[in-house]
Amino acid sequence: MFNLFLLQALNGIQFGILLFLVAAGLTLIFGIMDLINLGHGVLYMVGAYFVATLTAWTGDFFLGLALALPATLAFGILLERLIFSRLYERDHLDQVLATFGLILILNEGVKMIWGAAPMSVPIPDLLSGSIPLIGFMRYPVFRIVIIAAGLLTALGLYLLVSHTRIGMLLRAGATDAPMVSALGVDIKRLFMLVFGLGAMLAGFAGAMVAPILSVEPSMGDSVLILTFVVIVIGGVGSVRGAFVAALLVGLVDTLGRTFGPILLRSMMEPSAAAQTGQTLAPMLIYILMAAVLFFRPSGLFPSRGAVA
């Protein structure tokens, strides 16, 4: 039982780390530009497709990843220049409509270029093994690498946001973007930077899951919604909040699916417990979100003034 718990907890952390990578950029975009971007999930999808194609092309996952990251960065900046930069001054409804349109375009575009069938990316040989946990339990190296890469990224983001000049501008921008602009900072460049960074992080998440999930059109949609839940729980504009909330959501979702039915079994008969657990588990994170919002309407880490 404990082993199962440990295994599922690791899976939950790994899932949470991925959500954090997507949420980190998106929460900054919400917080600093006050832009509701439904299109962030497709960047995750695009990252996965880039790495799938480039890995097949170069024959090496690491080379593919190294090429996919600048490619998603460039793609993000291109989208920012073409579409998002024109939306900052619009109201939220316009932003919802335009980015909803963008999702339709990119999901369908991906389908046209790569086909509707899922693609798979082989796990690189170097990372394909598993390491022993406790007793007979083993855990895949690749998932450990995802967790490590995510934690390193989180640390890097923390240093960037809390200890650099750009980070200072980001924090200032989240508090009062017009004032930062009035003080002579090129806010447009700052926005572009945030957007490119966010796109690259989302693309990185997509690239990292490509070997363990199937790469398919619309794969970003479900991640987008979970990311929204993360951002709402963590507090819009707060990277720290996104980190805590992402791990919370990852753990609650993964553990709930495994242990919900087991816990219920102690209270009701097995078949009813399985049925109820199966139905309730996917709703857990939304119930969590509702509970957090009920007590703290601006999330766990309300952002006014603090990005980090």
Binding site: L87, A98, G101, L102, L104, I105, L106
Partner: peptide, 18 residues
């Protein structure tokens, strides 16, 4: 859906006030 998406983006971007 591609056509619908393009239509939507263009309508929002190039008509002021939505």
């Amino acid at each position: 859906k591609l056509g619908l998406g393009i239509l939507l983006v263009l309508l929002v971007l190039f008509t002021r006030g939505g």
